[in-house]
């Protein structure tokens, strides 16, 4: 291989050159980078608006070089809906965590998907409320100890962890639903592909796409970063299987042409 053909690893154009506020071993930084890469590859950085959630990623718009907007806790899909309806030519990304997407924003999550809004949801599932200090999330695993489940999550009291992809897969409208992970390099590459696909579909106006990304929060697990990544593999994936649930762009293209 000549030097010319070796891909150089570099900071993507869409990623702001600043130090993030994320903890060591956190997955948000990786996911931000993947989004920035995908937006650059699709040449849509200058027509994308990123909606940041309330949660650890509340400052996400500081790190990605696109217009940024803040939503109230759980309302990012509704904010995205309003913005996309107003400016249908723009790319709108709703970046959300597990508390945001599956607890306080459950209504918005389901109805936005059901309407098939032409937006992309990036759902970062790390099984805990990070920003507020480690409370139980709707995706906290059975028996998992958190600040507000000190004896471990007890499904008899608070139900089982909710699977977002499976829930949304019952709806007709979404074009693309996939669950990936960022716990190791191979998974990161798959996640990149998923994000790229989701955004490409939006660029083509095919409607609602949803990428759930299992991610690690070693800080709130109280473990080393490496252990945090292993925990995603050993504890989360068995309950949240990595899977492509839905991928039907052709159908959507036909529908689009018909209408």
């Amino acid at each position: 291989m000549s030097a010319k053909t070796i891909p150089m690893y570099k900071r993507p154009k869409g990623l702001t050159d600043v130090r993030t506020h994320y903890c060591a071993g956190c997955g948000h930084g990786i996911i931000h980078k993947l989004i920035a890469e995908a937006l650059e590859e699709l040449e849509v950085l200058d027509r994308t608006i990123l909606i940041a959630p309330v949660g650890c990623a509340v400052l996400a718009y500081k790190y990605i070089e696109v217009d940024g907007l803040e939503a109230a806790h759980g309302r990012a899909p509704a904010v995205a809906t309003g913005l996309k309806r107003a400016l249908p030519d723009k790319m709108v990304i709703s970046y959300q965590g597990d508390g945001d997407l599956l607890a306080i924003g459950t209504g918005e999550t389901i109805h936005t998907a059901n309407r098939g809004e032409d937006i992309t949801i990036i759902f970062v599932n790390n099984a805990v409320y990070g920003m507020t200090g480690g409370q139980m999330a709707p995706t906290t695993l059975e028996g998992q100890k958190t600040l507000t489940s000190p004896y471990g999550r007890n499904p008899a009291e608070v139900g089982f962890p909710i699977r977002a992809c499976e829930l949304l897969d019952t709806l007709e409208s979404p074009v693309y639903i996939e669950r990936t992970s960022v716990h190791n390099p191979a998974s990161v590459r798959k996640t990149k592909k998923a994000i790229l696909k989701a955004l490409k579909y939006q660029k083509e106006g095919l409607g609602y796409s949803f990428v759930e990304i299992l991610s690690m929060c070693p800080t709130n697990l109280g473990v080393e970063p490496v252990v945090g990544a292993d925990w995603v593999k050993d504890a989360m994936i068995p309950w949240f299987p990595l899977k492509k649930f839905r991928d039907r762009p052709e159908e959507k293209k036909e529908e689009k042409q018909a209408s």
Binding site: A72, R75, A78, A80, T81, K84, R85, A86, I110, H111
Partner: peptide, 18 residues
């Protein structure tokens, strides 16, 4: 909208678009 909370957030989104 699915709720008042969603409706006002949709307004926020559209207004942000100018």
């Amino acid at each position: 909208a699915e709720s008042e909370l969603a409706a006002i957030s949709m307004v926020l989104g559209a207004a942000a678009g100018g």
